[in-house]
Amino acid sequence: MDRSRRSALKAGGRIGLLAWLTAAGVLPVSAATVAPVFSIKGVDAVMQALGAGGARESEAVDILAAEIVENGAMVSVEVNSRLPGTRQMALLVDENPTTLAAVFALPEGTLPQLQTRIKMAQTSHVIAVVEAEGGFYLAKREIKIVQGGCG
């Protein structure tokens, strides 16, 4: 990985997720390159990299998912935010080898409600980080996994 790409991404973390996404979007993708933020381990470190270090728990963010899931290879998760100006959502899995699962940028007009499917290696907290008016917020939910699905 070259130096300019690395520093561009580092800088992106400081100036906010939206800028980071924009910057990352225009960089060329080379073979086997994974954006550094996806290779960071641990919820706190990933949140720092996303610029969301000071995120507060909010009851206006919901994670909808089953309490117990048989197969960790496909865990259906929905994130809802009732916070005005929600423009970013990120999904983190505490106990996964890759903590950050996905980051979504929601342009104006896109509803702050997303459903997707993620892999979970084992029972873990899933954390939804939302950027809205006034900063970053989060919600946490434990999902129990019968059989892990990270291959």
């Binding site: 954006a35 699962a101 980051v103 892999k119």
Partner: peptide, 9 residues
């Protein structure tokens, strides 16, 4: 606009 890591199914 979405960015995925390998934890997406």
């Amino acid at each position: 606009q979405a960015r995925f890591g390998p934890s997406v199914s």
